[in-house]
Amino acid sequence: MTEHNQPNEPIIICRDVHKWYGHYHALRGINMQVRKGEVVVIFGPSGSGKSTFIRTINRLEEHQRGEIIVDGIPLTHDVRDIERIRMETGMVFQQFNLFPHLTVMDNITLAPIWVRGWSKAQAEEIGMQLLRRVGIPEQARKYPGQLSGGQQQRVAIARALAMQPKIMLFDEPTSALDPEMIKEVLDVMIELADSGMTMVVVTHEMGFARAVADTMYFFDQGQIVESGTPEQIFGDPQEARTKLFLSQILSH
């Protein structure tokens, strides 16, 4: 029934989200709306809370104040709601986090089989399609440890896509990669963005942001300092902190 929604209807709504680690105030009132099909890039210095924030969206981190509504489901302590949201949101991690004891294909089909209840044959068919989409169908029977970092991250994207999520979350997907492998992962992500997937991406890849982002958010000290389209952010940043940070990461 979500097919009948307006194309620009918000699918993620965050209102005044706060998070503390002990006494440390990690997120200080984040407000964000992500529309269906929108590609959001979150960037900022390390320790600015951007990873923490993206992880509150699928409850890998618990927010302590404010509200988060994903695909119409408010995030509460209700475990079933949390699992429903996780089924609809795929996540890609900095360290890939593939399951080392399973083959590439088993990594991809595990959740569809055990969470969605698909048959093995059906799951493997979809898995093969996804491996072709990320460009490594020939690696299906290998183990993650036998692949390069770029290939592992592409498998991780395929694994997240196998659940047919409505939203994809990327937590610094290229930060652990050798430079020559970053492009192959970004290519997959750009293709995914072009296909209309709703994406929230924490990244320092400004080329990627410029190419596909609809909205960029600059995080610092647990707050959104500035947001806007790539043209606004790169062409005419308003805040001094944004200017400083951009000059630092774009200078080399």
Binding site: V79, E83, V115
Partner: peptide, 30 residues
């Protein structure tokens, strides 16, 4: 077992028992 394994399993929507039986215990026991 690294924390990332738990997070990856949870992010896929596995509940605690499935996560333990399919992801964590096979690696831990090995």
């Amino acid at each position: 077992i690294p924390r990332g394994q738990y997070e990856a399993a949870r992010a896929l929507g596995l509940n605690t028992w499935k996560m333990m039986l399919l992801i964590i215990l096979p690696q831990a026991l090995k």
